[in-house]
């Protein structure tokens, strides 16, 4: 299905860009007149996905993160966040709540937050090639 409207954003995997990424996506989604809670949910989920690219996919380097947002009929928003980083060896394990490879600083809840704050999430990953996370959320326009 073709999107009614879409945007693309490419940014470097620097932690200072996390705030910009979630703000840019939420500003684009604002055209659907979402509630404050829906916008917070989207910001939080995007923040998790972008942080994963920075701390895991490109952990030893700075490279590009590709974000695409599509608005579909009935106010369905799809957000795709893609990297060309190290990839995930075991997606099921990576998505399990509290699982983390960085126990001193990360809670291991990134995917749990994305799952609980969105209606659906799809993760595709190839080791050594990169990961694509797709977040899907329906906005119940006021």
């Amino acid at each position: 299905m073709k999107a009614n409207n879409e945007m693309r954003l490419t940014l470097e995997s620097r932690s200072v860009n996390e705030g910009f990424a979630r703000s840019a996506v939420s500003a684009f989604v604002a055209q659907l007149d979402p509630t404050v809670e829906e916008i917070s949910d989207i910001k939080t989920a995007v923040s998790e996905a972008v942080t994963n690219c920075i701390v895991h996919a490109y952990k030893n380097s700075v490279d590009r993160i590709y974000i695409w947002v599509g608005i579909f009929p009935e106010s369905v928003v799809k957000i795709r966040i893609r990297d060309r980083g190290c990839g995930i060896e075991d997606i099921k394990k990576a998505m399990a709540p509290l699982y983390t490879t960085l126990p001193d600083e990360r809670a291991g809840l990134g995917f749990a937050v994305m799952q609980s704050f969105c209606d659906d999430i799809k993760v595709r990953s190839t080791e050594g090639k990169g990961t694509t996370v797709t977040l899907i959320k329906k906005i119940n326009s006021r």
Partner: peptide
């Protein structure tokens, strides 16, 4: 004004 799961790590730590 905003917190993601990094805040969880902050509180738990």
């Amino acid at each position: 004004s905003f917190m993601d799961s990094s805040g969880i790590g902050l509180v738990m730590g």
